[in-house]
C-alpha cells in the first residue's frame, strides 16, 4: 500500500514552498562549507606540520654548514688579514714617491754620452733635477736632442746654462 503524506496542519502554520527551497539550499551550502572547512583545517595542519619538519631539517643542515665554517675559521682569518694587508699595500703604492724619478735617472744616464758628467741630482716626488758638466758642446747638443725627442718626459726645463773656460759647459735641467 502506498504511503500518502497527509498534512493536517492548518495552511497558515506550514512554511511557504519558496522558503523551504531557500532553507534547503542554505543547508546544502552549509554542508559544503563544513566539508571545505574540514579539508581546509586538515590541509593547513598538514602544511604547518610539514613546514615545521622542513624547517627543522634545514636548521640541522645549516648548523652542519656553520660547523664546517668554524673548522675553516683560520682560513677566514687569513683571508681577512690578506685583504686588509693588500688594502694597506695599495695605500702605500698610492703614496707620492721618488721611485719613478730614480728609474727615470737610470734610463737617462744609460744614453748619456761619456763626455757628460752628472755633478748633482735631486730626486723628488714631483720632478728630477740634474746638473751636468762637460767640455764637449757637441755631446751636450746630442744629449739634449735625445732627451727632448723622448716621449717619456712630459716636461724638460733647462734651468741654467753656464760656460767657463776652466769647467766647461755647466747645465741644470728639470725633468718630469
Amino acid at each position: 500500500m502506498d504511503k500518502v503524506n497527509i498534512n493536517l496542519l492548518p495552511s497558515e502554520l506550514a512554511p511557504k514552498t519558496k522558503t523551504i527551497k531557500i532553507a534547503s539550499t542554505v543547508k546544502k551550502i552549509a554542508v559544503i562549507g563544513i566539508s571545505v572547512y574540514i579539508i581546509f583545517v586538515g590541509a593547513s595542519t598538514a602544511a604547518v606540520f610539514l613546514l615545521s619538519k622542513q624547517f627543522d631539517e634545514l636548521t640541522v643542515k645549516e648548523n652542519g654548514f656553520k660547523q664546517s665554517i668554524r673548522a675553516l675559521e683560520e682560513t677566514e682569518q687569513r683571508l681577512i688579514l690578506v685583504q686588509d694587508r693588500v688594502a694597506k699595500a695599495k695605500l702605500v703604492l698610492g703614496e707620492p714617491s721618488a721611485k719613478e724619478e730614480i728609474t727615470m735617472f737610470e734610463e737617462l744616464v744609460f744614453f748619456m754620452p761619456e763626455e757628460i758628467s752628472v755633478t748633482n741630482a735631486d730626486f723628488n716626488r714631483d720632478f728630477l733635477k740634474i746638473e751636468t758638466v762637460t767640455q764637449n758642446s757637441q755631446a751636450l747638443v746630442e744629449f739634449f736632442s735625445q732627451v727632448v725627442s723622448d716621449d717619456k718626459y712630459r716636461e724638460v726645463i733647462l734651468l741654467t746654462f753656464n760656460y767657463s773656460e776652466r769647467e766647461g759647459y755647466k747645465t741644470s735641467f728639470r725633468l718630469k
Binding site: 702605500v92 714617491s97 721618488a98 752628472v118 748633482n120 730626486f123 716626488r125
Partner: peptide, 12 residues
C-alpha cells in the same frame, strides 16, 4: 717590507 722613497740627492 714595502718602502717609499720620498727623496734622494746625488752629489759627486
Amino acid at each position: 717590507p714595502m718602502v717609499n722613497f720620498s727623496s734622494a740627492k746625488l752629489t759627486t
